[in-house]
Simulated assay, not measured.
Amino acid sequence: MNRVVYAARGWLGTPYVHQASCRGAGCDCLGLLRGVWREVIGPEPEEVPAYSMDWSEPQGDERLWRAGLQHMVPKARDDAAEGDVLLFRMRDGSIAKHVGLQARTGGMASFIHAYSGHGVIESALSAPWARRVVARFALPIGD
């Protein structure tokens, strides 16, 4: 099994807590990515400043996308691999502000994410989710 997916599955069941990143205690979608990063790569590449639930939406600031481009390897959206970081735009015209980790590819594609009201779960990457993916990244891991 891919080590990113293995680490992410270790977070399943963690409650959703805005701005948190503590396996078993609480995290949000970015906190999940940060925690998996620490487990698989090591120290986080930068300190994450406090952020509101709207993720800079009123300003139209694609903050997560810029961070992805700065710290990860951009990939084509259709070049799916286990362990990829997925960036989602939850509504047309809004900024991309949800992240998940690709767990399976192919006909049973799934991703792991922290979702408000659900905690960390593995969801099918169904058509409604897949059409929201605006970017795909590989973590900078030397295998």
Rank of each mutant, 00 (worst) to 15 (best):
I41M: 10
P43K: 12
P43G: 06
P43A: 15
P45Y: 08
E47Q: 09
A50H: 05
A50Y: 15
Y51K: 11
Y51Q: 07
Y51A: 03
S52L: 15
S52E: 11
S52F: 08
M53L: 15
M53W: 10
W55D: 06
S56A: 10
E57C: 12
E57D: 14
G60E: 15
D61A: 05
D61T: 02
E62N: 14
L64A: 03
L64Y: 00
L64Q: 06
L64I: 12
L64G: 00
R66Y: 05
A67P: 02
A67S: 10
G68F: 11
G68T: 11
G68C: 10
L69Y: 02
Q70E: 08
H71A: 11
H71T: 08
H71P: 05
H71K: 13
M72F: 04
V73A: 10
V73Q: 14
K75H: 12
K75N: 07
K75E: 14
A76N: 06
A76S: 06
A76P: 15
R77G: 08
D78P: 11
D78K: 12
A80N: 02
A80S: 02
E82W: 02
G83P: 00
G83M: 02
D84Y: 02
V85I: 15
L86I: 08
L86M: 00
L87N: 06
F88L: 08
F88K: 05
R89D: 04
M90V: 06
R91C: 06
R91A: 07
R91T: 02
R91Y: 12
D92L: 09
D92K: 08
G93D: 10
G93L: 13
S94F: 05
K97A: 12
K97H: 14
K97P: 12
H98I: 12
H98D: 15
G100T: 02
G100D: 00
G100N: 00
L101F: 03
Q102M: 14
Q102L: 12
Q102F: 01
A103E: 11
A103P: 03
A103L: 05
A103W: 04
A103I: 10
R104G: 08
R104A: 08
R104N: 13
M108R: 13
F111C: 10
F111W: 13
F111A: 15
F111E: 13
I112M: 05
H113M: 00
A114M: 13
Y115R: 09
Y115N: 04
S116T: 15
S116P: 04
G117Q: 05
H118A: 04
G119Y: 07
G119K: 11
G119S: 13
V120E: 06
V120L: 08
E122S: 11
E122Q: 14
S123V: 09
S123L: 06
S123F: 05
S123D: 12
A124G: 11
A124L: 06
A124M: 09
L125H: 13
L125T: 13
S126C: 07
S126G: 09
P128N: 01
W129V: 07
W129A: 10
A130C: 09
A130M: 09
R131W: 03
R131S: 14
R132D: 04
V133K: 01
V133T: 01
V134P: 06
V134I: 05
A135P: 00
A135G: 01
A135R: 01
F137Y: 14
A138E: 14
L139A: 14
